[in-house]
Design a binder for these strands. Structure first.
Length: 323
DNA sequence: AATATGTCCAACCGCAGAACG
DNA sequence: GCGTTCTGCGGTTGGACATAT
């Protein structure tokens, strides 16, 4: 892997960047392109001294000719001490796969579950490695379903029979029986095609409603929107009790969801023929064969035994367990 | 050796939500 | 409640490097 800090040439230019201006970066004299070691040193030492935040004014205070966005990105993706460099380990890869199957392209959320990895790194790794790997296995990397054009139309036809159905523009998120149980109303989505209204978002909406702060997922119209959470490793110095508590709860819930996602993949084919039914799932097989050291794997491996319970009860159990 | 093609990944952009006055 | 600013996210780009021809 190339060392980014070695790419010290500031001469790299972007036609896109040169042509389009934004309020943040269009100022004359702003430097662009790869960061030099000197700039890295300036930024790192300043943040070490003064802390993160106030990115807009940080460059001036730190003596950098960069826009705040660029500084933030450089810090978050490269300079932070907690950023882990190097190859993605097999267990990390497996976790990325399963989280992506559950969350879709919520890179920051996935990154928050993998200590030391940034959303940009995971996004890149997905686009360059994992998506191709899945395609090679005959799996659609967006849907995590077999690459079979016949099934998609059938699914759409059957799903359209539902009264409140709105076609899901984000196939990253697999429809599960559990999700259907919870999200009974119309699906909410944004104009950019992101599916809005997953079980996670419903869940977080409930958390906010129950008085938990820190993960506000409510949009202005009251729908669950844009699942956002703090990175597990990005706010280590600033976590207050509420955030810590919420993150912990969310962590537990996500672990359980990963678990149940596996369960549903195997279960819904028999139970609900009108529901999109994933085919052979490499995530399941890998989860069953790879040994992990991290703590999150244990419940994933054991919960399949709950296959006799109905999904609604499973969700209720979740809520009761964690709240 | 020279060129073409493919891969990787840091960096940029536009956008949306949160925060603030 | 409204407008503005700040922050963070996901999608995308393009240069550096690796490999194939």
């Amino acid at each position: 892997m190339r060392n980014p800090s070695s790419s010290s040439s500031p001469s790299k230019t972007s036609t896109k960047a040169a042509g389009v201006s934004t309020p943040c970066c269009s100022k004359v004299g702003m430097k662009r392109g790869p960061w030099t070691p000197e700039e890295d040193q300036l930024l790192a030492s300043y943040i070490k001294r003064e802390g993160e935040g106030r990115w807009r004014t940080l460059p001036k205070r730190a003596g950098l000719l960069r826009c705040g966005k660029s500084c933030r990105l450089r810090w978050m993706n490269y300079l932070r001490p907690s950023v882990k460099r190097g190859q993605i380990a097999p267990d990390e890869e497996d976790l990325i796969l399963r989280l992506h199957r559950l969350l879709g392209n919520r890179w920051s959320l996935i990154a928050g579950r993998i200590p030391g990895r940034t959303d940009n790194e995971i996004k890149n790794y997905w686009n360059t490695h994992l998506s191709k790997k899945l395609i090679g296995q005959g799996i659609d990397p967006r849907t995590h379903k077999p690459l079979d054009p016949n099934t998609s139309s059938d699914d759409k036809a059957s799903s359209s029979k539902k009264a409140n159905y709105i076609p899901n523009p984000n196939p990253n998120l697999v429809t599960s029986t559990l999700e259907q149980t919870v999200t009974a109303g119309p699906r909410i989505m944004k104009g950019n095609g992101h599916y809005e209204g997953t079980i996670l978002e419903q869940y977080h909406g409930g958390m906010v409603g129950n008085g938990h702060a820190g993960l506000n997922l409510q949009s202005s119209n009251g729908s669950g929107l844009g699942l956002r959470s703090s990175h597990g490793f990005s706010n280590e110095d600033n976590n207050d009790d509420i955030n810590y508590c919420t993150d912990d709860l969310f962590s537990s819930f996500l672990n359980s969801l990963i678990n149940e996602d596996v369960f549903n993949s195997q279960h819904q084919v028999q139970q609900q023929p009108n529901v999109i039914a994933p085919g052979p799932d490499p995530l399941i097989s890998s989860a069953q064969t790879i040994s992990f050291g991290a703590g999150w794997d244990a419940p994933i491996m054991t919960s399949v035994s709950a296959s006799n319970q109905n999904d609604s009860k499973m969700f209720n159990d979740h809520v009761e367990k964690h709240f």
